[in-house]
Design a protein around this nucleic acid. Sequence first.
DNA 1: GTCTATAACACGATAGAC
DNA 2: GTCTATCGTGTTATAGAC
Lengths: 200, 200
Amino acid sequence: MYTRLMSTRDRLVEATRELLWERGYVGTSPKAIQQAAGAGQGSMYHHFAGKPDLALAAIRRTAQELRAAAEAALGGEGSAYDRVEAYLRRERDVLRGCPVGRLTMDPDVMASPQLRAPVDETLDWLRGRLAGILQEGLERGELTGPLDPEAVAATVVATVQGGYVLARSSGSAAAFATAVDGLLLLLSAHKVPAEQGRSE
Amino acid sequence: MYTRLMSTRDRLVEATRELLWERGYVGTSPKAIQQAAGAGQGSMYHHFAGKPDLALAAIRRTAQELRAAAEAALGGEGSAYDRVEAYLRRERDVLRGCPVGRLTMDPDVMASPQLRAPVDETLDWLRGRLAGILQEGLERGELTGPLDPEAVAATVVATVQGGYVLARSSGSAAAFATAVDGLLLLLSAHKVPAEQGRSE
DNA sequence: GTCTATAACACGATAGAC
DNA sequence: GTCTATCGTGTTATAGAC
């Protein structure tokens, strides 16, 4: 149930976002959406063509939010390592999993070019953004090789996505943190100590 | 459809394993299982108490197979690094995702202590097995610190699980390989070159 | 815009014949 | 052991009143 300060359309989208996160596309019925949004059948089919159309609106919104949250950490102050660490350690609803990444396991989402596009684009943007930061770190002399930015960026994204799996499996958010710790430990071996002439 | 050389019971389990892998628990109906197995309603409910019971048999079997496949790589010849690499690079149906890991995103599986137990146990065993190998590598002088075996083991498992997400998202198995490459690149910085007195 | 009614089918399971 | 019949409920809509 969402506040009546939101339009029916927005409540439907928000309810769908929550259910998609919790139960996936296959596990989410129009009826469940309507009940969560406090809307009738008629309202839903007035605002949206059907379940796929509503899901598309929800997925796009979720992808946009994820991107903004990631950028808040990645675009911050500090060295390349610091920004990657900030991203890895940012606050997360770990036990709920990744609202975007989990859609990759949904057969109906993957079967629809429309629904899968925002998922692919978001993860690809994230990987590219991380690669750029790592590349910059190498160029600025903050990081030392051998360190392929594209490959390590993929590893960073994969560790996060897999961290959710470990956390949900064990029922503990600590499992996510441990995987991140391991990655940062490996990455920190490539840190160049800050020397005179730069940031201190 | 499965060979008639298998018992009806086994065909039901195999069909369930395939559908669970492809569509998850929530997305798999008894009817779909029966059709894939070439069995009627009566057969299914004769051999199994219901969908959860059948799913449990299927999940246990899948977990067992995954464990055996992982052990084949992890228990092989070579240094700690080599065995971890063998595990990471072992042949996989990358675009299908992990048949065990994907269950962590299934709300009905996670809500059932019985169904989630094999998932948790399998991933936990894998993490522990990897940690043991890394620890051994440190003790034997094949690997050099700082390298927390428990944390890095979690990172290895997470990279694999997340690699599946990246591969399915992009529709390309190469994305999995890239994430693995990045991890091995980071880990290889801790390799101690084989010297006189050991294995050569 | 939102509501209720209805439809055609799928879901997950039970009953009982064979 | 396997089959068909049946059940009550849920799914994904469409129709049409208000």
